[in-house]
Design a protein around this nucleic acid. Sequence first.
DNA 1: ATGAATAATTTCTACCGCGAAACTAATTAC
DNA 2: GTAATTAGTTTCGCGGTAGAAATTATTCAT
Lengths: 364, 364
Amino acid sequence: MLIHGPIARGELGRRLGLSPASLTRLSRPFLDHGILVEGQERQDGAVGRPVKPLDVRVDAQRMLGVKITGEHVFGVVTDLRATVGASATTRLAGHGVDDVLDGIQKLIDDLDAHDVAAIGASIGGKVTGSSLVVRAPFLDWHDVDLGTAIEERFGRPATVENDVVALTTAEQWFGHARGVDNFSVVTIGAGVGYGLVVHGRQVITSDTGLGLGGHFPLDNTGPLCIDGHRGCSSAMLSIGSMCSSAGVGLGRSVDYDELLALAAEGNAVARQVVETSARALGRLIAASANLAMVDIVVLSGEGIGLVEVAEDVVRAAIESDRDPDALPVQIRRTDADFTSWARGAAAVAIESGFGLIPSAATLR
Amino acid sequence: MLIHGPIARGELGRRLGLSPASLTRLSRPFLDHGILVEGQERQDGAVGRPVKPLDVRVDAQRMLGVKITGEHVFGVVTDLRATVGASATTRLAGHGVDDVLDGIQKLIDDLDAHDVAAIGASIGGKVTGSSLVVRAPFLDWHDVDLGTAIEERFGRPATVENDVVALTTAEQWFGHARGVDNFSVVTIGAGVGYGLVVHGRQVITSDTGLGLGGHFPLDNTGPLCIDGHRGCSSAMLSIGSMCSSAGVGLGRSVDYDELLALAAEGNAVARQVVETSARALGRLIAASANLAMVDIVVLSGEGIGLVEVAEDVVRAAIESDRDPDALPVQIRRTDADFTSWARGAAAVAIESGFGLIPSAATLR
DNA sequence: ATGAATAATTTCTACCGCGAAACTAATTAC
DNA sequence: GTAATTAGTTTCGCGGTAGAAATTATTCAT
């Protein structure tokens, strides 16, 4: 219901292979608890008693999602479908846990989010148990139990997840891959992230959170990344790397927006840089489609504007690496908005909250 | 039990979260029907009543697996764990369905396999519904209902599957990835095949059976494949392509065994060809590990001898494309034996047979 | 032998979810 | 207003499953 929207008891019963009687019984406790509500009766002119679709009461609770980076904390308040209501940013005073907690406190004040039901946090790095930050290079953290720290400070349930994992969850539940069983996610920003959902479940391994998607080799004539890989996805696609490459050619430093603008208006250097990156992105997308056997790739992150400027180059690169008999790869692009990271954190909090309400029996 | 081997009722109950009472009840019908047997009592010197492990009666039935190519049919007779007992080959008289059925008849006679419980067939091409061959380029077949044809001719249940899918199933159930949740399979032979298992289930898409794994770009300076891809996995790794490359350099034609032998003894041309292919294979393995998020890759197919001759090159290529922080990729190599293809077909037949015995209730 | 320990079985009961069938509710068609 | 139609509810019993407790089986230790 969260994913697909309002649905009548009867229709839901048919989909689940249950009788109408069972649906009455099963839905009652959720209605009693205010988790579900009956929607408006349909006015479609058909004969018979009109249906009263059930829906999740999406505004029953608000959620706070925060994305933590080395310098800032970004926060969004969402409803139960991870629709963003308000967003805010605050700068971190330092890299301590208390600095981060203070940042979250500031966000809560600024967003007037004192009433949120739960807090989800996401962070670049390895996270286990939806709470423990095993490693977060940007904050130089090791084995910090951030989830518990947030719960203690703010007195509400908290979930912590890797940022790419969280964003992938958001796309799967509420975003551009809602209800899709197999897809991958590529994020472009300060680095390159890669998430994968197969058989309706995100693939999580012990490597998850190490940022491996960021160092996939794409162009053996490309520049070096910080780890010394030539032409890896970070080297080819991260905002910093693209701006540096353009800066060399242009003889002055440019920021990402300017680079894209220059490319759009035909500047040769900018065009070259952007197209080289676009080709690399196309190769990455095609490789994911070929080897992970997905045919939908969601693109996200604040560096996604690249695709807008050079979409044809991306598509051409995909095609040249993809068998013509294969299903075409669907590219789904999210907004280039940084809030999508914080929204991902909120989505994880929502998911885990609903995980706590698994059956009618427990509500009874 | 098929996958993990004998296990006592008590231990099985603990693993499944069931009481000993339930396990007695649930296992009885299987024992009554002879599907399970009690094994030998343990003699470990521990006090108490000794355990009587349960096991699948692996020789309760025999299975016939056949692999169909454009020129031959290969057959193996196996037990219920897909252990190969006997194998045979026969040449096809033509490309008609009847020619294939005649070939299978010949195999049954040669293998004395008149008593097999079921027949599994595998074929290079797209197959749906475990029966319908949608497309099989080597036989120029379109929409041939081979499964039904086999059932009618031989009067026993038949399953038909794509050859790579079948081989992957065999590795997952009975082979080198027994009980592993996430792994991929790369086959090297006349072409290159790619199979993927995630979350314990093989990934099957509408592209499955089109041989897409065979045209993944690996080396943009490599030779062309039959479809005009430069340096794709087929061009770099298929037996025919490797032999052609070597033949150009050597000034005479060589077969695969000779090529590998020459490379092993240090012939410069052969070494160069084999190492170039080994590097390409390493890149393919690394790409699969990176993008499909697996850390076990099973190598199979009759062209796998390449790895024996140049394993260090393969490993070096994997490492250069893989983050050093990531889990190392485990390579598991099957025999270079062609029977593994036919064994795959048998594995599918076993799997579908056991799919027909899903619960104690149906046996009662 | 006897007792302790462990495995497996039997017996018995609880219970739980499901759906058939009958019923109520709310609409349109005439 | 009445009939037809479809949605949803209530009642009630069936079927199936599980496990607690007692029992039986089989070993080792002494």
